[in-house]
Write a protein that binds this DNA or RNA. Structure first.
Lengths: 342, 342
DNA sequence: CTGAAAGCGCTTACAG
DNA sequence: CTGAAAGCGCTTACAG
């Protein structure tokens, strides 16, 4: 079925000139009222506002952008890696928090998928004044290009870039070391003494930090930290890591898993092995999402407040864009959530 | 920590005048070359293109938008209902497909969260020429306002609006009746004869259509269709519905669940009841995502190709925006994926 | 406090 | 085939 349809939007939108005419003032003055400039006679303000209300006037964003040199748009840059994005609730949550916050401002949030085939394309777009700033989520360490970008465009990172700390970078992140320690200490408080871990990919900052937290907590308690296996954040990698742990033949009474997705895979292996959770093995993980909430048993985890993080990233970016001044580091707090697995 | 930072982006972007000067032509001519207008002397085309390459010129989108009356941006409108959006992989997948497709065009995709407090705000934004078109995902039946919107702005729906069929609406959807039937027929082919269902919310088109598919397949086979319970797409509602089914005291050998999320909840109940899947009860569900892939046993399901749907929605919308002509209905095909649960 | 004028970076009739 | 001019809808020095 095919059909002719309208083209173009907002056909006869009221314009600034219209408002000015109706209020009996110049466009300059109308503009001043609209933008809240000082030193405008109250009576004039009132008349202009009435005209605006009567006409249902809303300033044309494009025209305003052109003259102001601002697009009133920010980009959220998402790594392409399709499969990962699908399965990982992390992105959906950050995006949700960011979009929600942005909706309460007069900035638009636009989604930009990094082209793997042509990474330059993304940077071109960002550098060409198409957006006022960017939110960068890369898990992995491709960020040297983004470091450069951050010199010409306001950029907020959702993950601390790897390598030496750069104080010019603005980052909003979560303390993954604390998160790892929180989960581990909780198992220790539950009386567990032989605690293994399934770490996230050690190529990622988050994976390494959470592992460090685990080690730290064990050290505090004088416990061994030799039982480490690595996964890649997917459930199946969690299952495989759990199998490798079983293969060691060491009796374990606690397991800290670097992500809820991996934990859900690990639970299947424990069940198949006839181990009861939490009776035989208490399990704690990191990140609260569909995987931790719907596992059986439900998973004790550390809430990373990921959607808050998305909102905080936008807030930081708008601070940078509008004021040019910002805290270079914002840490989102984490909380332990105790459920049936521990 | 606080620090002074740059403001504004693209500081000294090359301009059309610059290109024109360097090529020794007028801005009009340079513009024509850039926009591929006909009847330009080959030599001139070459010189302008060289100037563009030398300068690294990229047209200013904002200026272009202002004169063309097009923003080169489309909005994806997301229902606010936070919790649902979080847990439901559907949105993430549609968004991903849409963003991916949009990235291959010169349109930007911007995320617009419907304000529940002030729904008019969303419509205002859409009507004010901020975008060239909109993608609407509402599950529920709030869409009469969107129907109106569709009269003044190109709109593509991701779900068939409830009520009488309106041939002026553009919709990209999936045949949920076929999906329900596919899952059900598969269990019948597996020799199951007493097949219950857990339907999605019957207030949604998808919930009703999938249920109709289940009924249709049972009718074909001459089987009873009296075992229906309803859930709300969450895992816990699936668990409760499964319990209600158990409470009926009817022996069932097949179960069709209206979503993978609900199925994951139902599986827990079956396991606790000591029923083996698929030996005692074969389970099939609808939608392929983290829930169906990571359940244990892994779930036989109907793949709805949701990210393809997101891409198709963008394609349809751009057709509408650019050509003003479009197929009013696009159906995304569905496929059965057989896994361990059946 | 307010208005006339210039200009943001493009595109597109209109002449030639 | 090409250029001079007008204009898209705003904002903002500059005068007054």
């Amino acid at each position: 079925v095919t059909t002719e349809m309208h083209r173009g939007a907002a056909a006869f939108a009221p314009t600034l000139s219209g408002v000015a005419a109706r209020a009996g003032v110049s466009r300059s003055t109308a503009s001043r009222v609209i933008n809240g400039a000082p030193h405008v006679t109250p009576g004039v303000v009132r008349r202009v506002n009435e005209a605006i209300a009567d006409l249902g006037y809303v300033p044309n964003r494009t025209a305003r952008s052109l003259v102001r040199g601002r697009t009133q748009t920010i980009a959220m840059v998402i790594p392409e890696r399709t499969a990962e994005f699908f399965a990982d609730p992390y992105f959906a949550e950050v995006i949700q928090g960011a979009a929600m916050y942005a909706s309460s401002t007069d900035y638009s949030l636009s989604l930009l998928i990094e082209s793997e085939a042509d990474p330059e394309k993304t940077f071109q777009f960002l550098r060409r004044g198409n957006v006022d700033g960017a939110l960068v989520l890369s898990h992995h360490s491709t960020s040297s290009a983004y470091r450069d970008l951050a010199r010409t465009l306001p950029v907020v990172f959702g993950v601390r870039p790897p390598g030496e700390w750069d104080d010019d970078l603005v980052v909003v992140d979560v303390d993954n070391v604390v998160a790892g320690a929180l989960a581990t200490r909780h198992l220790i408080e539950r009386g567990r003494t032989r605690i293994a871990t399934i770490a996230g990919p050690l190529t990622t900052v988050a994976g390494r930090d959470r592992l460090d937290g685990w080690r730290g907590a064990l050290a505090e308690a004088g416990l061994d930290d030799d039982l480490v296996e690595e996964g890649d954040y997917t459930p199946s990698s969690g299952a495989e890591a759990a199998r490798r742990h079983r293969g060691r033949g060491v009796a374990v009474d606690g397991l800290v898993v670097g992500s809820a997705q991996m934990a859900s895979g690990a639970l299947d292996v424990l069940r198949d092995a006839g181990l009861a959770v939490p009776t035989d093995v208490a399990v704690a993980t990191i990140d609260d999402n569909a995987f931790s909430m719907n596992a059986s048993p439900t998973l004790t985890t550390v809430d990373l407040h990921t959607s808050e993080k998305g909102a905080a990233m936008v807030a930081a970016l708008l601070g940078l864009v509008a004021e040019g001044v910002v805290r270079t580091r914002t840490r989102i707090p984490v909380d332990l959530i105790v459920r049936a697995s521990s």
